[in-house]
C-alpha cells in the first residue's frame, strides 16, 4: 500500500513540477486572496489593526481556498486522456492511490503555507512567533484538509458540475479545521501557545478519522467515479 502511495505521489508531484500549475496558478491565487483581505480590511497595519488581529484566520481561509484548487487540479489531471481508467486498471491498491494523491497535495500545500505565512507576516505586519506550534498545526491541519479534500474530490469527479460541487461539500466539512488551526495560530502569535490545548488533538482526530475513511472508501468511490 505504501509503495503504491509512493508511486502515485511521485507521479502527481512530477506532473506538478512539469506543468507548473500549482506554482503558476494556485500559489498566486492564494497571494491574491491575501491581498484582497488587505484591501477589504486595511489599510491600517500593525499592532491592534483589524488586519493584524485577523491574520491567523485570514491565513487559514486563504489555505482553505487554495486547498480546493489543489484538489481540483489533482483530479483534473486524472480526468484528461482517460487517465482515471488507467489508474483503475493499474492494479494499484486504492488505499495507496488515496494516500499518494493526498500526500502529493499535502506536499504542495505545505510549501504554499510556508510562503503564505511569510506573506501574511509581511503584508499584515504580524510577527511570527512560537514557530514549532505554527508548524505542528500546519502539518496536522493540512493532513486533515487533504484527506477530506481528496475523499470528496473523487466523489465529485463523476459530476458534470464538479467545480461548484467540491467547494460546497468541502468547506462545511472542514469547518472544525478552520476553527482549530485559527485558534492555535492566534494563541501562538499572541505569545501564549498551548493555553487552549486540545485543539491540536482535535485536528489530529479529524486527520485520523478522514484518513481512515479515505483508506476504506476510496476503492469503491474510484471504481464508479
Amino acid at each position: 500500500m505504501l509503495r503504491d502511495a509512493w508511486l502515485v505521489a511521485g507521479k502527481d508531484l512530477r506532473i506538478e513540477v512539469r506543468s507548473k500549475v500549482a506554482l503558476g496558478q494556485v500559489a498566486p491565487f492564494a497571494f491574491v486572496v491575501v491581498l484582497l483581505f488587505g484591501l477589504a480590511l486595511g489599510p491600517a497595519v500593525g499592532r491592534g489593526s483589524v488586519l493584524s488581529a485577523a491574520a491567523p484566520g485570514l491565513f487559514w481561509v486563504a489555505v482553505l481556498l487554495a486547498t480546493v484548487l489543489a484538489v481540483q487540479r489533482s483530479f483534473a489531471v486524472e480526468a484528461a486522456d482517460g487517465a482515471a481508467d488507467g489508474l483503475r486498471l493499474s492494479g494499484l491498491d486504492p488505499a495507496g492511490v488515496f494516500l499518494g494523491k493526498a500526500a502529493a497535495v499535502a506536499g504542495q500545500l505545505l510549501v504554499l503555507e510556508l510562503f503564505l505565512a511569510a506573506a501574511v507576516s509581511l503584508v499584515y505586519d504580524r510577527h511570527l512567533s512560537a514557530l514549532v506550534v505554527l508548524a505542528a498545526s500546519c502539518v496536522t491541519a493540512t493532513i486533515g484538509l487533504v484527506a477530506a479534500g481528496v475523499l470528496y474530490g473523487v466523489v465529485s469527479m463523476g459530476a458534470r458540475q464538479r467545480e461548484t460541487l467540491l467547494p460546497l461539500l468541502f468547506f462545511p466539512l472542514v469547518a472544525p479545521i478552520l476553527l482549530g488551526a485559527t485558534k492555535l495560530w492566534g494563541e501562538a502569535l499572541a505569545g501564549a501557545p498551548g493555553r487552549g490545548s486540545g485543539w491540536l488533538e482535535l485536528l489530529g482526530a479529524f486527520a485520523v478519522a478522514y484518513c481512515a475513511i479515505g483508506v476504506v472508501a476510496f476503492g469503491p468511490l474510484l471504481e464508479e467515479a
Binding site: 466523489v155 461539500l169 479529524f206 468511490l221
Partner: peptide, 19 residues
C-alpha cells in the same frame, strides 16, 4: 459513503464550536 462522511463530521463540528 457521503452520508457517512458528513455524519462523522457532526460531533467534531459541535465540539469544536463549543470550545
Amino acid at each position: 459513503i457521503a452520508a457517512l462522511v458528513a455524519f462523522v463530521d457532526v460531533p467534531i463540528v459541535y465540539f469544536s464550536v463549543l470550545w
